[in-house]
Design a protein around this nucleic acid. Structure first.
Lengths: 134, 134
DNA sequence: CTCCTTAACGATAATCGTTATCATTATCAT
DNA sequence: ATGATAATGATAACGATTATCGTTAAGGAG
C-alpha cells in the first residue's frame, strides 16, 4: 500500500524530469524542463512534464514559483523563498532575505488569520539589462 | 494634444468602472467589477472592463494584484502593497507591513540588480475559515 | 443643433499557460 | 512470461486575458 498522490512506478520520463530540475540552477519553466529532458527521453510530451512536476511539487522535492503574466518557474526545493525577476529579459534568481523575521512582523498585523507561507517577488532590472539600458 | 496612453473621451462605461473600483474595499476581480458596473451600464462587456481597468492601472489610479491560479484583483491605489489571500475562500485583504525597510534589506543582497517593486503575498487561512475548520 | 471624425464600445475570436481526457504503451508484481 | 493497470503522448478543453473588427456614440467644428 502507498500514498495515492505519489507516482507508483518508476519511469524513464519521471527520472529524466526529476534529474533535470535537480541539476538546473536557472529556475526553468515547464517548457524548458521538457526541452532539456528530451535529450534523455526523445518523445517526451509537455503534458507529462507538467504532470510529473506537479507530483514533485506535492512531494516537496520541487518548488513552483508563480510569475505574473509569465509561465511558472520550477526549482529544486531549498530554504529560500524570495525571488527577483528581471522585467526585461525574464531572468529569475533567488534573493536571500530574512524571511523569518518578516513573517513574524506580518503575523503581528494579521491577527485572526493564519499565515502559512509568503510569496515574495522583487521586480526590476537585472545587472545585465541595467548595464545595457542607457 | 494629449498623452496617447490615456482614454481621450469620457464614457458612461469608464466612469462606471472607475467609480466601482474606487468605492469597493474588497479587491474585486474584473468579472466582479463588471457585474457591479452593470447596475449603471446594463450592456457593459467584460472586454471593456479589462480595457478600462488596464488604462487605470497605467494611470496609477488602480492597482492590479496578481494571485497564482486565480484571476487578478483590482483595487484603488493606496500605500500598501502586501496582501493576504485565504487559500480556502479566496478572500483577499491588505497587510500593513513595513515594506520600506524590507525593500532596503533586499536591495542590500541584490547587488547589481535594480529592484523597482516588491510583490508580497501571504497565503493561509483567514479568520473565518480558520474558525470553521476544526 | 447638426454633422463628422474617430475613440470607444460590444461581441466574439484568438492567445497562452495549464489541465483533463483517453486510447495506447510499458512497468512490475505475480 | 503475463496480465493488471499506472503512466504516457496526443490532443482537446479550460479559464483568464487580449486582440479584432464592425458598430455606436462622444464631442469639437461649423
Amino acid at each position: 500500500m502507498q500514498a495515492d498522490n505519489v507516482l507508483k512506478r518508476n519511469t524513464r520520463q519521471k527520472s529524466a524530469i526529476e534529474s533535470v530540475v535537480l541539476s538546473s540552477s536557472d529556475h526553468p519553466t515547464a517548457l524548458t524542463v521538457c526541452e532539456r529532458a528530451k535529450d534523455m527521453v526523445p518523445g517526451l510530451s509537455l503534458g507529462t512534464v507538467y504532470r510529473v512536476l506537479n507530483m514533485l511539487v506535492k512531494e516537496g522535492v520541487v518548488r513552483e514559483i508563480s510569475v505574473p503574466d509569465a509561465p511558472s518557474r520550477f526549482d529544486k526545493t531549498t530554504r529560500t523563498h524570495a525571488h527577483f525577476v528581471c522585467t526585461v529579459c525574464g531572468e529569475l534568481h533567488d534573493v536571500e532575505v530574512d524571511e523569518g523575521s518578516f513573517l513574524r512582523h506580518a503575523k503581528e498585523r494579521c491577527i485572526g488569520d493564519e499565515i502559512d507561507e509568503a510569496e515574495i517577488l522583487f521586480k526590476g532590472l537585472c545587472a545585465d539589462c541595467k548595464g545595457v539600458k542607457p
